[in-house]
Design a protein around this nucleic acid. Structure first.
Length: 331
DNA sequence: TGTTAGGACCGTCATTGATC
DNA sequence: GATCAATGACGGTCCTAACA
């Protein structure tokens, strides 16, 4: 819980992203509260746990008591965080501190104001108070586990190469070849090949079979540092053939530059191009992830709006019921 | 049936905060 | 200061519903 949440806790009895059907199971604030300034109906006590309706003992002016089911939920952090909110909270903090720290506070306030909200942070802080909302890190972890057979090794690649067909080949330390097709979408464009004869070179060809979407056309590429050529043939069951390279490169083969062996300006240019394409690939994936988080954040906000609207409606009904009860008892 | 407006999605660039 | 990740902005493409 950060200070960002404090202000919203005071402002509204916010509820987190919960199923809309649970909106009615709300509880009263502990302690006394007045229904309205004009009435003398006081709430003497309330008792309820989270998720169960609270029954409140209402003391009427006539001395009679009534049991009322409350709808006000305990204070919860707000989903919404904005620079404005942060400014208000920082200002409130500054009020409590000594004036001698005013300059430092102003600087900190300016820094906080300039920061943009992070969907990851927002949702993580939200989920820390609402178990119903999955944490993004946990979600990503589960996603990684789900795709562990093909993607997890991507985290520590040994080498990354770019083919003439726009694909990226990652050679991991375990001898796994990963082929990423930027044109396809995420996981579907990633293919993992296991070099069955890696470490024990054998004469002749090695057929590597894999399951997945096949790229278009036959593709060949070199694996620098390894005396092999990987040749990909497409079809219903594509096969990647790893063989010893011949003295002349096959037509269409692109020899990827190995880091640390750049000499000519052309190689430098190729290295720059490779770095640029790698950066674009990373940014492409980052943008995709950012959009996903943003959609999740918007959904969370929409859920909260629905819950608050439901809560507001229930509060109005409760107020009306209390007024009717009060009028009935007064007669 | 062709046209068009609107939405969803994506890739790229620029910017900014965080980290080393 | 360099590098990287996250995110806003912008433009492009594709799909779909509405309409003449």
């Amino acid at each position: 819980m950060t200070m960002d949440m404090v202000e919203s806790q005071q402002d509204d009895s916010a509820v987190d992203s919960v199923p809309e059907g649970d909106a009615g199971h709300l509880q009263n604030q502990p302690g006394q509260s007045q229904i309205s300034p004009g009435s003398e109906v006081s709430v003497a006590a309330s008792s309820a746990g989270r998720g169960s309706p609270a029954v409140t003992l209402v003391q009427l002016p006539s001395g009679q008591t009534a049991h009322v089911k409350g709808v006000i939920q305990a204070t919860q952090p707000s989903v919404i965080q904005s620079p404005h909110m942060q400014a208000v909270q920082v200002a409130s903090i500054a009020d409590e501190s000594a004036e001698s720290e005013g300059i430092i506070d102003c600087q900190k306030r300016r820094e906080i104001l300039s920061r943009r909200p992070s969907y990851r942070k927002i949702l993580n802080e939200l989920s820390s108070d609402a178990p119903a909302v999955p944490k993004i890190e946990e979600e990503e972890k589960s996603e990684d586990e789900g795709a562990s057979s093909g993607i997890s090794a991507m985290a520590m690649p040994t080498s990354l190469y770019h083919t003439n067909t726009g694909q990226y080949i990652t050679i991991t330390q375990g001898g796994t070849i990963q082929i990423s097709n930027p044109a396809s979408d995420g996981v579907h464009g990633l293919q993992t090949l296991q070099m069955t004869n890696s470490g024990t070179p054998q004469p002749g060809a090695t057929i590597v079979q894999y399951a997945g979407q096949s790229p278009d056309g036959t593709q060949q590429f070199f694996v620098p540092g390894s005396p092999v050529v990987v040749q990909a043939a497409t079809g219903d069951m594509p096969a990647y053939q790893i063989r010893t390279p011949t003295t002349t490169l096959p037509q269409g083969v692109v020899m990827a530059a190995s880091p640390g062996t750049l000499h000519s300006p052309q190689q430098l240019a190729e290295e720059a191009t490779r770095k640029r394409e790698l950066r674009l690939l990373k940014n492409r994936e980052a943008a995709r992830e950012c959009r996903r988080k943003k959609k999740e954040y918007v959904k969370c906000l929409e859920n909260r709006v629905a819950v608050l609207e439901n809560q507001n409606k229930t509060l109005i009904e409760e107020l009306k019921a209390l007024k009717d009860l009060y009028c009935h008892k007064a007669e």
